[in-house]
Design a protein around this nucleic acid. Structure first.
Length: 605
RNA sequence: GCGCCCGUAGCUCAGUUGGAUAGAGCGUCGGUUUCCUAAACCGCAGGUCACCCGUUCAAUUCGGGUCGGGGACACCA
């Protein structure tokens, strides 16, 4: 469905194949690839059709750490039993001993592989040398992306829904940067048209009331309390000067002041939320240039815009939209679409290879017509990808917090921010796929306990940071990866962590390709879970009392050691050194992941 | 009525572009702290993956249909 540019292509028998990006997977895929090639050269396999060489993570430990289904996928085109094909692949692996501890064939035709710990552990060195760059990939190959998000009318403060859009947009932007795109983040200011007029009129009404003159809000006017505040500001600045002006002029003065004030408030909210835009694009600025007319005329000469019933229409139906759409009403006003056509044409002309729009999910019906615009300018529809963001249901201790923008009473982003903080808000906004509704419990987000996933992940980072702090205090040297004996990390718990670390690049890549930042959030929760367990079970630094102790203790990794917790586990300086290396890289990946989501990675909590 | 999203444990949701005995968190209940942060850890229980049909060696995943929930429909933005 979602089409995305794909990296790491390699050609095999004339077919393009996708390859995973992390170290171990790459190695294993190469080995399988090589085995297939050799079997082919020996006439054992025809390889008329090549299946994807993807690797699965087996669900059970006895199935190894990676599994391949190639044999089953190949079986029908090879006209052989899957088990036979698996055997052939196995027999033709040339570097088997160097890479695997075990390769086994299982029931229907799985190839279950256990990779040598040494190979897994090599990822630690990779993380160390890459640091903050670990996990980056070249999916984008430098392609230019414009991601537009929030884009709220400057007619009021941002509400929670905008907050979710902001968190998603920012995370996407960072994700795409990490995936090798050149990214520009833009806010489209809807500062033209009817809504702005209504804003001016509403403020003027409140202004008059302040001045003791009776007035009533226009239908569809803005009711919010903030309108009153803005009216107060107008009164402070201009006194009663507006009372003597003709209404249209007074309203327009109110509009201009309100606009400046509200836009500034929006920018302030976003800044506080840690969201920074590269570019602010004004709709009013665009329409002032006359470009909308120009664009419509241009489309008219191509018969993509036509006149009917006194209105002007965009022939979006030829590009798959269900019907044509009005761009200029009979009364002569442009519709929102007209401005949007010009805006998206402008984006395309600025030379972006990919446009991403983050919209509220209620605009989903708008997608076909915008993709029609993109096609009208000669680009494939998927040059524009729309990420939909669903509603946020605010809860407080399980009970719904009612919101109604109509009545002017809605929960603002600012309120949520000041109540739970930017980190917690972002984490919650990114905890679900963006196109599913989100329950956001304010009480839960504030709670400093295990059931709050934000703190769970941040605490994992803080704990590790603390280990290094204590190590430094005690004068324990933190070695470089190359200086430690990594073979001491060959136990199941350490390897589980290392395998998780090595999956990080694939998670990022998948997340970026699918435009789904929530995958990173899930990954971080899983990694945090592993490290909390590890921390509880295994000691990294020697206990102060045990530093000279030579007492008999259960053998490392034995049942007894696992039962009776970490302090009985033998801990030599070499083990401490190796574990410090491991902890250091886990900390790094936690930091990388959190920073991708725009969330801080605290050193202490 | 036409598109869109969704239906997985009591609740909220993941499920790696079709794989083996379907996972996590919360909630319930029970346990763990002389020692690197208990904001943590461990254990128990909980499922016809809404339903039917199809494609396949293999379907929670793909296709079709049914039922149910949400959102949407404009010469509003």
């Amino acid at each position: 469905m979602l089409q995305c540019p794909v990296k790491n292509l390699y050609i095999f028998n004339g077919l393009e194949r996708f390859m995973p990006s992390d170290l171990v997977r790459t190695t294993v895929v190469d080995a399988l690839q090589d085995a297939l090639q050799r079997a082919h050269e020996r006439g054992l396999l025809t390889l008329r059709s090549m299946p994807l060489l993807t690797l699965d993570l087996p669900k059970r430990a006895e199935w190894g750490d990676l599994a391949s289904t190639v044999a089953m996928n190949l079986a029908s085109s090879e006209r052989r039993a899957p088990l036979e094909v698996a055997q052939i692949i196995l027999d033709n692996m040339s570097k088997r001993e160097a890479i695997f501890d075990r390769v086994e064939i299982a029931k229907p035709g799985f190839l279950n592989m256990t990779v040598k710990p040494k190979l897994w552990l090599a990822v630690l060195g990779e993380i160390e040398s890459s640091g903050a760059a670990y996990g980056r990939c070249d999916l984008g190959q430098g392609r230019k992306v414009l991601i537009e998000f929030v884009s709220a009318n400057p007619t009021g403060p941002l509400h929670v829904g905008h907050g979710r859009g902001a968190a998603v947009g920012q995370a996407l932007a960072r994700l795409l940067i990490a995936a090798g795109y050149h990214v520009v983040q833009e806010y489209y200011i809807n500062d033209a048209g009817r809504q702005m007029k209504l804003l001016g009129a509403s403020v003027y009404v409140r202004y008059q009331e302040r001045m003791g003159r009776a007035a009533s809000l226009p239908e569809d006017g803005y009711h919010g309390e903030y309108i009153n505040d803005v009216a107060g500001l107008v009164a402070d600045r201009l006194g009663d000067a507006l009372l003597t002006l003709p209404a249209p002029e007074a309203e327009s003065r109110c509009r201009d002041l309100a606009y400046a004030e509200l836009l500034e408030a929006i920018q302030k909210d976003l800044k506080e939320f840690g969201i920074v835009f590269d570019s602010w694009y004004s709709e009013a600025g665009q329409s002032a240039t006359g470009v909308v007319d120009q664009v419509l005329n241009e489309l008219r000469t191509r018969a993509l815009v036509f006149e009917e019933d006194g209105a002007l229409w965009f022939r979006s139906s030829v590009y798959g939209d269900e019907k044509d759409r009005v761009v200029r009403k009979r009364e002569g006003d442009y519709t929102y679409l007209a401005a949007d056509i010009a805006y998206h044409r402008d984006k395309l002309q600025r030379g972006y290879d990919l446009l991403i729009d983050v919209w509220g999910a209620d605009h989903h019906g708008y997608i076909p017509r915008m993709q029609a615009v993109v096609q009208a300018y000669g680009h494939p529809a998927d040059r524009l990808r729309v990420v939909l963001v669903q509603m946020v249901h605010l809860l407080r201790g399980g009970a719904k917090v009612e919101m109604s923008k109509r009545a002017g009473e809605f929960v603002t982003m600012r309120e949520v921010l000041s109540e739970v903080g930017a980190d917690a808000a972002k984490f919650f906004f990114l905890m679900r796929r963006s196109d599913t509704p989100l329950d956001f419990d304010l009480e839960l987000a504030k709670r400093r306990s295990a059931d709050n996933p934000v703190y769970y992940v941040q605490y994992a980072h803080a704990r590790l940071a603390s280990v290094f702090r204590v190590a430094q205090e005690r004068g324990i040297v933190v070695p470089k990866t190359g200086e430690a004996d990594l073979s001491l990390l060959a136990d199941a718990d350490s390897l589980a962590l290392v395998r998780k670390l090595s999956a990080y690049p694939s998670v990022l890549e998948g997340s970026a390709a699918a435009l789904e930042p929530h995958r990173v959030t899930f990954y971080l929760q899983e990694l945090a879970g592993l490290i909390h367990t590890y921390y509880f079970k295994h000691r990294v630094l020697p206990t102060v009392s045990a530093e000279e102790s030579t007492e008999e203790e259960p053998a490392f990794g034995s049942e007894a050691a696992a039962q009776c917790r970490n302090h009985r586990e033998p801990l030599t300086p070499a083990v401490t050194a190796a574990r410090l290396v491991l902890m250091g890289q886990v900390r790094q990946v936690l930091e990388n992941g959190l920073s991708l989501l725009g969330i801080s990675a605290p050193d202490r909590m």
